[in-house]
Design a protein around this nucleic acid. Structure first.
Length: 288
DNA sequence: AGCATCTCCTGTAGGC
DNA sequence: TGCCTACAGGAGATGC
């Protein structure tokens, strides 16, 4: 499941593979992938245009194809692959035929991926329009999290998954970052102090940076533009390691369900920050 | 408003 | 062996 590091890697490879290529025609075999505009317009508008660049924003891939932008989200299992004459893999839903005889194939087993083609920001997918800051954005700091979530009772894991709060984090790296920060995923946002947010932000950046350098994580199906798998999965400390010993303390990794997602953590290393709430302090005064 | 749950989808794993 | 069910999850929709 591609998150920021995987999309970043795909993006860098696509920059090498498709920039400068001119589209001859486009084949759309699964209409649901194309969210905007209609299939007919999508194909007709791309014909004869040249790809000038590819960039990433959150988990979105944005192809610059003047005067348009093609915004592609891989969701769970979307993959791009540049091909010449190789046999086509099943679940290939969109094919961009280039004038040089090569083709860019979009493959997506679970059919969750989306594409938008537009020259107007108001037609961007909602998620891109409301996307929060990039994790490596220098203006991002602990105060931002305190301000946006300091009073909320939402779990910190659920908050990390909200793309309008911080862009690009998915289930794998949310679990890993919380482990690295020593914060319990079920801790409520209001329980975190500024230093906790600071530690979490540092951990998020550290995990994402390491994963980018390793070429991302391949859990089920992720592959880059060349069909290569990522290497970070072997460095995962908690994700999908339920029942195995924590590599820090030896305690069994536990799996719970949080925010509708499988959530993995070490019950010894990851604590809910201790906060003395008003009601608790009133209670203590009464007891005293 | 804020939060939880459901939905889309298919391959895989586990139980019987 | 073969069938059935649960599960995986990003993001948008829905409901409380």
């Amino acid at each position: 499941m591609p998150e920021l590091p995987e999309v970043e890697h795909v993006c860098r490879n696509l920059q090498k593979l498709v920039v400068g290529k001119t589209i001859g025609c486009v084949e759309v075999r699964l209409p649901r992938i194309i969210c905007y505009p209609s299939i007919q317009e999508f194909c007709a508008q791309l014909q004869g245009l040249t790809i000038q660049g590819v960039r990433r924003r959150g988990k979105y891939l944005i192809f610059s194809i003047p005067p348009f932008e093609l915004i592609s989200h891989l969701r769970m299992e979307g993959q791009y692959r540049l091909a010449i004459s190789e046999e086509e893999q099943p679940h290939t839903h969109v094919v961009f035929h280039f004038t040089d005889g090569t083709e860019l194939r979009y493959r997506d087993v679970r059919q969750f991926g989306t594409m938008h083609l537009t020259d107007r920001p108001e037609n961007y997918p909602i998620g891109l329009q409301t996307l929060g800051p990039e994790p490596f954005d220098e203006s991002l700091n602990a105060s931002y999290f305190l301000q946006i979530a300091g009073r909320r009772k939402l779990s910190v894991k659920a908050l990390l998954l909200q793309q309008d709060v911080i862009a690009g984090i998915g289930n794998i790296y949310a679990d890993e970052a919380l482990f690295l920060a020593g914060i319990h995923p079920a801790a409520s946002c209001w329980q975190l102090k500024k230093k906790d947010w600071q530690r979490l932000l540092v951990s998020v950046r550290e995990i994402l940076q390491m994963a980018i350098e390793a070429g991302g994580s391949t859990i089920r199906s992720y592959a880059d533009g060349y069909g290569r798998h990522g290497g970070f999965q072997i460095q995962l400390q908690v994700y999908q390691r339920e029942g195995q010993p924590c590599q820090h303390c030896g305690r069994e990794i536990v799996k719970i369900r949080l925010a509708g997602r499988g959530t993995h953590f070490c019950p010894k290393c990851q604590k809910i920050p201790r906060v003395q709430s008003d009601s608790q302090s009133v209670q203590r005064r009464k007891e005293a």
